[in-house]
């Protein structure tokens, strides 16, 4: 009568628990899982040959290549920027720190279309430095540089957002310890700071990469939709779909869906590692057994 009942007294009744779980599952199934299955079903609806042909088609291939190039530039750039910004924010006190933090969040707050428009206004033929660029024969808007710039802008916050709270939670004790032991700034960064935030960094990079490859709005504005030249995968899918090439559209879409699935798996693995790391930095009971890893949410 005592322990079993009292342990449950803080819980909701069984019917409520199961109906809540049921509603959540039904929602996830119908709004997330079914559409994903539908993408693959549609892509393969006309057989595997049609599917492969759609991917081998030169314009599709060029879109895939452009998407990879964009991600290959944007992700490393934001990796470097993200580490630098979080290092500065987590370790130093300076004027305008709050402003810098909000600035990093700006791409989340602004609609991607606006991001694209900003670059048109800056670099377009009627923009601020557009004429100068034209005189020097530099193409930014409606060309690959514009697409990369827009992608970099949109994916700006991912790495920094992930690292700042992690680095703030870890504090600077370990770095100060390293320096007092004679390590140089670079040695401290390479041997202490970076290994400590490794999993957070990878997590940020995965999210950043997923967004860089999947970005539509901002890229759509600056791309100019030149087939085989300035179309990324999401843009190419839209064009195919508008031209009633259902199977081809879904074939390319299935690649992005696949990317999402891979991202999801990687994310789960990394999250698990990250959680272990956070648990490890929790205080242990002074002379007792090591603490059990806490069941944190990420």
């Amino acid at each position: 009568m005592q322990p079993k009942k009292s342990a449950r007294s803080t819980q909701e009744p069984r019917w409520l628990r199961y109906s809540l779980i049921g509603i959540a599952l039904a929602f996830l199934l119908s709004f997330l899982f079914l559409p994903l299955v539908f993408v693959f079903v549609q892509a393969l609806a006309k057989g595997v040959d049609t599917y492969l042909d759609a991917l081998k088609e030169p314009d599709a291939w060029s879109a895939i290549r452009l998407t990879l190039i964009t991600a290959a530039i944007a992700v490393p750039f934001n990796l470097v920027f993200g580490v630098a910004a979080s290092w500065a924010i987590a370790r130093f006190e300076f004027k305008g720190k709050a402003f810098l933090v909000s600035l990093i969040d700006l791409p989340f707050a602004v609609s991607p279309v606006i991001c694209g428009l900003i670059y048109i206004l800056l670099f377009g033929s009627h923009g601020w430095i557009g004429p100068w660029l034209q005189d020097h024969d530099i193409k930014i808007v409606f060309a690959i540089p514009g697409i990369v710039l827009a992608t970099v802008f949109v994916t700006f916050p991912f790495v920094a957002r992930e690292l700042i709270p992690l680095m703030q939670a870890q504090g600077k004790d370990e770095e100060e310890a390293a320096i007092s032991l004679g390590a140089s700034g670079f040695q401290t960064f390479w041997r202490v700071t970076l290994p400590n935030v490794k999993w957070g960094l990878i997590y940020g990079v995965i999210l950043c990469n997923a967004r860089a490859m999947g970005e539509f709005g901002a890229v759509s504005v600056v791309s100019g939709h030149i087939r085989g030249e300035t179309n990324t995968m999401p843009l190419h899918i839209e064009i195919l779909y508008n031209e009633y090439q259902q199977a081809a559209a879904f074939a390319v879409a299935s690649l992005l869906a696949l990317l999402a699935l891979v991202t999801l798996v990687l994310k789960s693995v990394v999250e698990w590692r990250l959680r272990k790391e956070l648990a490890a930095q929790d205080e242990l009971p002074p002379d007792g057994l090591p603490a059990t890893p806490r069941t944190a949410h990420a």
Partner: peptide, 18 residues
Amino acid sequence: TRDRQVGFVFQHYALFRH
């Protein structure tokens, strides 16, 4: 600090966790 040849012990140990 790195040239002072001081050993510093922190309240929360600051061991390199990895």
